[in-house]
Design a protein around this nucleic acid. Sequence first.
DNA 1: CCGTTTTTTGATGGCATCTTAACGGACGGT
DNA 2: ACCGTCCGTTAAGATGCCATCAAAAAACGG
Lengths: 236, 236
Amino acid sequence: MKLKDKVLIIEDEPSIRNFISTVLTANGYDTILAAQGSEALSMISSHCPDLIILDLGLPDMDGLDILRDVRSWSNLPVIVVSARTHEHDKVEALDLGADDYIEKPFGTSELLARIRTAIRHTRTPLANGGIAQSGKFCVGALTIDYDKHHVLMDGQDVHLTLNEFKIVALLGKYAGKVLTYDYMIREIWGPKAKADNQILRVNMANIRRKLEANPAEPEYIFTEIGVGYRMRDEDT
Amino acid sequence: MKLKDKVLIIEDEPSIRNFISTVLTANGYDTILAAQGSEALSMISSHCPDLIILDLGLPDMDGLDILRDVRSWSNLPVIVVSARTHEHDKVEALDLGADDYIEKPFGTSELLARIRTAIRHTRTPLANGGIAQSGKFCVGALTIDYDKHHVLMDGQDVHLTLNEFKIVALLGKYAGKVLTYDYMIREIWGPKAKADNQILRVNMANIRRKLEANPAEPEYIFTEIGVGYRMRDEDT
DNA sequence: CCGTTTTTTGATGGCATCTTAACGGACGGT
DNA sequence: ACCGTCCGTTAAGATGCCATCAAAAAACGG
């Protein structure tokens, strides 16, 4: 794992917060911490974590409101951790868009496994008929290695910057489908980014210079004028 | 647009199997049942379920082997249900690619919520440029691919401009029904557009030049004089 | 603290697309 | 037959959108 995944831990109890942070750090994650809801929301948009661990018992606001807010602009993975064991609590959180719900107390290895599962989901949806091996996306001479954060062309490593990789990864995740500019910007730059897609065009130009033999006639990432971009699928 | 999601229930204990099946059926799912591993594997490939509920305690083979087998060729959602509560059992199943792990005994509403969550992961939550639709529409030699924002004639890609595509997409969405000029204009150019349908006529001429063999006698998009346009339906 | 990489913003040019105008044919009513 | 309405078609000017280059600003690493 070359580049570490960043996990935001939202938990008011300092001992639990530090415990989770320690465990995750020891297992190869970067962690950022928030003790209150308001703080958490601003950290989400400024730090763009790869996953959120959310405790529901927060002092200043309902944890579910944080979930609602995040879900209003992104489908970033959220694992809810709570001492509430009532079934309707779980149902409510899951239906609001939580990706998992773990009851306290929980085992650390289960937490880690569920984190891996949640992150795996962000990288391997079934764009094509299901024939995707988890962890990698391949089409033509292009390979996206989600675990190592690498992109290969003809087996050669292609250096992409972080944002460039995020763009390619997102397109690969939904290969064959057009992603609108707005959606991509929100997914990568967060909710407070301005809806100017110039920044996407610049990045795309750089990406194509690295990936395409002839950037003027792309073979992998296509522009759907007025709508967005689309990664090549098995069937063109 | 499929109406019901199909769930394969792999569970050897008949009472539990039927119980789950009853619950799911009552909640709008189609269910198919398997009592053993070998049977399950063949049903997966023949019935193509949308989700699998897998009990680990099977008589003829280890449930994890089924998971392994499925994951070797697909990332279809699998929810493991088991009486084993040891942490390492959960970790093992999740790391093999299970999307969730529920301990027995479990509440039905939690099961349903986790099923919804798993299925949600397989859906693409994105917005395409204004016309909320996904999948494909086919009639005659014409295919509208809503995901790619492309239109095919005889499998050949036909290039349409953005507004042209919106028009065709809209007509395809309501194939067989007449859409009035005013409705189409409002739908595509917004509510403040002027109600002059000249712009529609120009676009329609361009569309027919690209799609129809003989624009004077259309085979796909018909004019209902004084009213609007209509896309051909299956039954001419 | 400085040099380097990365990200963001600004500016330009070209091409695709949109819009509007004008004309002609078909049809129906008077 | 004449006139008006409605639709299809073509053409041309105006606009919008996208790729690209360049430079400023910010983040990063030592």
